[in-house]
Simulated scan of single mutants.
Amino acid sequence: MQIDAHQHFWHPGRGDYGWMPKDDPVLSRPYAPFELWPQLQAAGVEGTVLVQAAPTVAETEYMLGIADATPWVLGVVGWVDFERPADLAELQRLSGHPKFKGVRPMIQDLPDDGWMLREDVQWAFRALCDLGLRFDALGFPRHLANFLTILKRYPTMQVVVDHCMKPQIREKSEAHFRFWADGMSRIADETAAVVKFSALITEADADWTVEDLRPYVDHVFAAFGAERVMWGSDWPVCRLRGEYADWRAAALELTAGLSDVDRALVFGGTAAGFYGL
């Protein structure tokens, strides 16, 4: 089964997408299942994982409603307030929904790079372990060391590194590449985390090429192996640099050297196993 392990739906009128630029011609409009489905069919993708885009439990409920009405949305990654221990009750309640698979705090947007190490948020990591839920790790290369600390502190927590930890490909800097690559290698070697092969084009220049992406993709596969890599579109955010079909075609080209078995893992099997789809 071909699975898109990372996509979004939203409606700006909800009012809880604080990161979204106002009047952005790509992002600042509603995105719903009817628009994505034809693109999935064209790509041969049969199911998706719908991921949060707002730091509210209300948006998680909104996504679960979409998932209930959309058979091909196989799982939902939502949000709870890690700074509010009372949200343990929300997490327990949400975990009863068969399509609720885990949570993603929006760490990339937080001013404190050490937020995840704070004592007052540790209850949430422990709860994810206790409830068998997943943690989507969203950040930038500067967060790699702190993520490594958290992953080693909670070795039973099921973790996926979103978007290859967003290497800044557009910088074309060897020093930046090495910093990112070393951090990703440590996570691969010292933890059981998996990684999402997604969103790389949005970290590249507007005129990106497959060859711009290749060193980063090759490193991820060398470090993690196909059995720990899952492809995601990051649609509609990917539209900042290309349409769904553009990124899908690039991903297929970048994985052309893999065996059929490994490609089946990257484009479906890893996501199915990790999220329990």
Rank of each mutant, 00 (worst) to 15 (best):
R214C: 00
F197K: 01
Y275L: 01
T149A: 15
L148E: 11
Q39D: 06
F82L: 15
M63K: 06
L27W: 04
Q158D: 14
M63N: 12
V229F: 01
E253Q: 15
D246V: 10
D182H: 13
W235D: 03
P98A: 11
F140K: 13
P38C: 02
F82T: 00
P215G: 02
D68Y: 01
V45I: 15
D113V: 15
P12W: 02
H163S: 12
C129G: 15
M230R: 05
A204I: 04
A54H: 06
P141N: 09
L110Y: 11
M20I: 04
A32W: 00
D218G: 05
H176S: 15
I66R: 00
L36R: 03
Q168T: 11
F125M: 13
Q168R: 15
K22N: 12
S198E: 07
V103G: 03
V80F: 07
R186E: 04
D260C: 05
W235F: 10
T202D: 09
V266I: 06
V229Q: 01
D136V: 01
D68K: 12
D205F: 00
G13C: 06
G78K: 08
D24I: 05
L258A: 10
P141M: 07
D246E: 13
G132R: 12
G13R: 12
G183L: 03
K22I: 07
A206L: 13
